[in-house]
């Protein structure tokens, strides 16, 4: 479960107060809102990338409000994918496991398992440069899933894709929801994405989050 209660968070001069919502364990929660409404700010607070001024964030009933990002167990897929440019696709996907000291054989096995599942086996030994939007998104997804996080956070994962690829990745996100036990917070401003994927949906407008 992702639970946010009375959260106050600031990004420069922009500030949100009294933000609260819950996504039950294993459900795909969608947070909608116009550009500039503060969706990404909430998401960054959830990941531990932005220190809240007040309030509480908990995952599976564990308070993570002041935990560093590394200890939160979040798989984060940012809008621009942010693949590591100096690593191969394989190294990108295996990065979280390598940090955890997982033996190389197990890293190999997990990377190949994810790559097979996401249809990117042929890309594993390529550099991350010159990939298509869909390929980049699959790799970012595999990288986020590798360490089997309890919480997955998607920041507008389909916004930079063409229509065909968007449908493909949308199907893939639905499969992620079915195959992983992670609780998902998915930020978007697309109503079709929300209606296709959401178990529970929220709208962020005028600094308040309301259930849709």
């Amino acid at each position: 479960m992702i639970a946010i209660k009375d959260l106050s968070v600031r990004a420069g001069a922009f500030r949100l107060d009294g933000i609260g919502f819950e996504i039950p364990t294993g459900k795909h929660g969608i947070l909608m809102g116009k550009t500039g409404s503060g969706k990404t700010t909430i998401l960054e607070a959830l990941c531990g990338l932005r220190e809240p001024i007040a309030g509480r964030i908990s995952f599976m009933n564990k308070d993570v409000t002041h935990l560093p990002p590394a200890l939160r167990g979040v798989g984060y897929v940012p809008q621009d994918r942010a693949l590591f440019q100096t690593m191969s696709v394989f190294e990108n996907i295996g990065f979280a496991l390598e940090l955890r000291g997982v033996p190389q054989a197990k890293i190999d096995s997990r990377v190949h398992e994810l790559a097979g599942w996401l249809g990117i086996e042929n890309l594993l030994h390529r550099s991350t440069r010159g990939l298509s939007g869909g390929e980049g998104q699959r790799i970012a997804l595999a990288r986020a899933l590798a360490a089997k996080p309890d919480v997955l956070v998607f920041d507008e994962p389909l916004s930079a894709l063409d229509e065909d690829t968007r449908a493909e990745i949308c199907d893939l996100l639905a499969r992620v929801r079915e195959h992983s036990n992670a609780t998902i917070l998915h930020v978007t401003h697309s109503k079709s994405e929300a209606s296709r994927l959401a178990d529970i949906a929220f709208l962020l407008a005028d600094g308040k989050v309301e259930r849709m």
């Binding site: 960054e44 590394a70 939160r72 940012p78 621009d80």
Partner: peptide
């Protein structure tokens, strides 16, 4: 260089210093 890569690395398990050295 976008700071986003370092931020993703931190969510994957890096400390800030590791994100600096590795990314």
């Amino acid at each position: 260089i976008s700071p986003r890569g370092e931020q993703v690395a931190m969510t994957l398990g890096c400390s800030r210093a590791q994100a600096f050295w590795r990314i």
